[in-house]
Design a protein around this nucleic acid. Structure first.
Length: 465
DNA sequence: ATGTCC
């Protein structure tokens, strides 16, 4: 997109007005610093954002966070809210990895007391948490148990003995969406993902051990049980092959259904159906079941990490600080022009950031991460949403040509990060050079008042599929 | 992201 198409609203907010293209129903807005603009203009993400602004029933603005980059149909880093009666639901607005998200676990140990054990801990986590593409788990569930997990999410996983009841109070939506309907999930999806509970996957999914190296808001940090020097563990994964197959199944359904509803979209990848239509409701029920699977997955991985921690460090309990979804659509109440309205909010590579809620923002590999807290502007401007991470700026293909995985591993070890990875090529694709600067992304949403900084984390160990 | 093309 040309720079001239964009109008600057403030030091952190930009707008593509409706006049840009005749089919736009609302303006598009995105959060970015001046320095990030060139990067954002370089790929098709803003054209994708304009495409989102054309979808039936969209309310307010088609929005994007500073970690915006190109995705399937909708840009990653995008937020779009729709009228539940007049609007659509689109699998591309959620992503193939339904309820990809991040969980943060807190230990009670300062870095100094476990420093020597970190390499062994990373190795043990790698042993306990299966990873890699297509890989299942030795812990399995019957088809009846899988149905229960799809319906009941993380609470069902805790009921099966994997976790503590108090974990559930520290998960977005309690780790379950109650409209989930396992009967709307295909047998094929259940077959693909049914043995993948408690597994990490690959790509940008990881388990990372971090040290808290800066406190920005002492009061909020105390409230979250976080202190300087503390060892914490981040876990990033989603719904694995099951969610991927739900997306695949319903993109096909919606492509076939669109003519029936007279919906025309500027890009096939925006396949959608009216939210209130049978196809829309079936996808919403299946997507919610996929979201529940992802929360159950992160719950079981938490249990596996606790096993590893116990084996290497000791009996010290690991506490769930919070668990956020960043690929999901939910019905929420938001205030629009002074009126409270029910809206279907799509977040794709965007994190819910309600006021006071912990917002976990992983950086790229080897760089800092942040824990934020939702701010007031999030409720007024971004449908209760913030950014979700650094955001890719280089394709996987380009990254693996530019970076040697084994050399990257050495560099990470040299700066004090223990590494366990299933594939050196996979590691190269996740090099920090392939990502935007997390500090710039975070300071943009902080300037906007969408979120406030609470603590910064620096990595001391990372495990990848 | 993904048994990285049924």
């Amino acid at each position: 997109m040309e720079r001239s198409a964009i109008r600057q609203i403030s030091g952190w907010l930009w707008e593509i007005p409706r006049s840009y293209r005749s089919d736009m129903r609302v303006p598009a807005r995105f959060y970015a610093s001046e320095a990030m603009l060139e990067q954002i203009l370089a790929d098709r993400s803003l054209e994708q954002l304009v495409n989102v602004a054309t979808l039936p029933g969209i309310v307010g603005f088609a929005l994007a966070m500073p970690d915006i980059h190109e995705g399937y149909g909708f840009p990653i880093g995008g937020v779009a809210a729709f009228d539940p009666d007049a609007g659509i639901i689109s699998p591309g607005g959620i992503g193939y990895d339904i309820n990809c998200g991040v969980r943060l676990l807190a230990t009670s140990q300062p870095f100094e007391s476990v420093r020597e054990k970190i390499p062994d801990l990373v190795k043990e986590i790698y042993r306990q948490v299966p990873s890699g593409v297509g890989h299942g788990n030795r812990i399995t569930f019957s088809s009846k148990q899988l149905e229960q997990i799809l319906r009941d999410g993380a609470p069902r996983m805790v009921a099966f003995g994997y976790g503590e009841p108090e974990d559930l109070g520290h998960i977005e939506s309690g780790g379950v969406i109650d409209v989930a309907d396992p009967s709307k999930v295909s047998q094929y999806a259940k077959q693909r993902g049914g043995d993948q509970l408690g597994t990490l996957g690959t790509g940008n999914h990881f388990v990372e051990i971090d040290r808290i190296d800066a406190i920005f808001d002492q009061e909020a940090a105390v409230r979250m049980g976080l202190f300087e020097g503390q060892i914490v563990i981040q876990l990033h994964t989603g719904s694995r092959g099951l969610g991927h197959q739900i997306a695949t199944d319903y993109i096909r359904v919606m492509n076939r259904a669109m003519p029936k509803y007279g919906i025309e979209v500027p890009d096939r990848e925006l396949a959608c159906a009216p939210f209130c239509s049978p196809e829309g409701q079936e996808y919403f029920s299946a997507m919610s079941a996929g979201a529940n699977f992802a929360w159950a997955n992160r719950q079981l991985i938490t249990w596996e990490i606790r096993q590893a921690w116990r084996a290497v460090v000791g009996d010290d309990p690991l506490r769930v600080v919070y668990d956020v979804a960043h690929n999901i659509a939910k019905v929420e109440t938001h205030e629009i022009d002074g009126h409270r309205r029910q809206l279907l909010v799509h977040r794709k590579g965007a994190t819910r950031a309600f006021v006071g809620q912990p917002v976990i923002i992983p950086g790229s590999m080897g760089t800092a991460s942040f824990v934020l807290e939702g701010g007031l502007a999030s409720m007024h401007e971004s449908f209760g949403s913030s950014c979700h991470g650094a955001g890719r700026r280089m394709s996987r293909t380009k990254a693996k040509h530019m970076v040697q995985g084994s050399q990257l591993r050495q560099e990470l070890e040299a700066i004090g990060v223990s590494v366990q990875a299933g594939s050196m090529q996979g590691l190269a694709e996740e090099a920090s050079a392939a990502y935007k600067d997390i500090g710039e992304v975070v300071s943009t949403v902080v300037s906007a008042g969408i979120a406030r900084k609470v603590v910064r984390l620096v990595p001391v160990g990372v495990m990848k599929g």
